[in-house]
Write a protein that binds this DNA or RNA. Structure first.
Lengths: 147, 147
DNA sequence: GGCATTTACTTAACAAGGATAATGAACTAG
DNA sequence: CTAGTTCATTATCCTTGTTAAGTAAATGCC
């Protein structure tokens, strides 16, 4: 009965390798973000708005896997700094629609440029085929998490 | 001159997507722990002791990129739970040598196993081609970090 | 239409885990 | 032996997460 065992081991090995690689890369990227006044969570919200457009508060909380109160506070802070605006939903007065301001958009561009500097450098040193693999992997990982 | 700009934007977007995906997946994997009451930081300390052997408190703080007081608190908690022990350094009475207990070793094994279990489950729900992509991506990410 | 329930967000209170500053004990240099 | 340095700890504060409770708007049932 070598076949099932071998398959199980391969599967387990694949999972281990992915887990270790993801942890290491996350850790490495995190160390690169030394100089920045904006926290990860705050930046992630602006980035989500930039990539996916306006959200209600609840949608943002769900997307970032964070409680609604936590998202309220984050949004308060970002609103005070002028990076986004709240407005009432036309059809549902309970909902708050959150929209990126031009200033917020600018901050995302600028911050992303600085934060991603290390990743871009690393991407520049691998082949286009490898970059393509990573891009597809990123999409798959997003789906694994979203599930 | 649209081509260079478009390329630069794609590159930046690629880096952003990868960073976000890796952070999210790492976060999700991190939620799978053997001991629910143990934080990621605490587990990281046990894992460091497991992989690299006994450390002084300062060495642990440096390795985890954390202040000495923060590490003191983390170690206090882990010591109270019996996962590690403090002992005086033979040659330098100021230093505190921190050693993993058998129980601590067990927690590391169990947690690694559970994290892999979640990843394996997630891998089971995607196609073989996607698994292959992730496997290749894991190898590429390891190389990016190792560089 | 009016009242109860549900939904979406906010406020309040609290816990975890990070930081710096200050304290204490042990080593080292002069 | 005294002065200065280093390692760990304690004290205090900040950020960011949580759950519980409160408010306002929408929905559903007579």
């Amino acid at each position: 009965m070598t076949s099932p065992d071998a398959a199980a081991i391969d599967h387990s090995r694949e999972a281990s390798d992915l887990r270790i690689a993801v942890f290491r890369l996350a850790r490495r990227m995190r160390t690169q973000r030394a100089v920045d006044s904006m926290s990860d969570g705050q930046f992630a919200v602006l980035a989500a708005l930039w990539v996916h457009g306006a959200h209600t508060l609840g949608e943002l909380a769900d997307r970032e896997r964070v409680s609604a109160p936590a998202m309220t506070r984050t949004v308060n802070c970002l609103e005070e700094n002028g990076y986004l605006t709240r407005s009432a939903d036309e059809n549902d007065g309970r909902k708050v629609v959150i929209t990126l301001t031009d200033e917020g958009r600018g901050v995302v561009d600028e911050t992303a440029r600085r934060r991603d500097a290390w990743v871009e450098e690393a991407l520049a040193e691998i082949t286009p085929a490898e970059r393509e693999t990573l891009a597809r992997a990123a999409e798959i990982m997003q789906r694994m998490v979203a599930r």
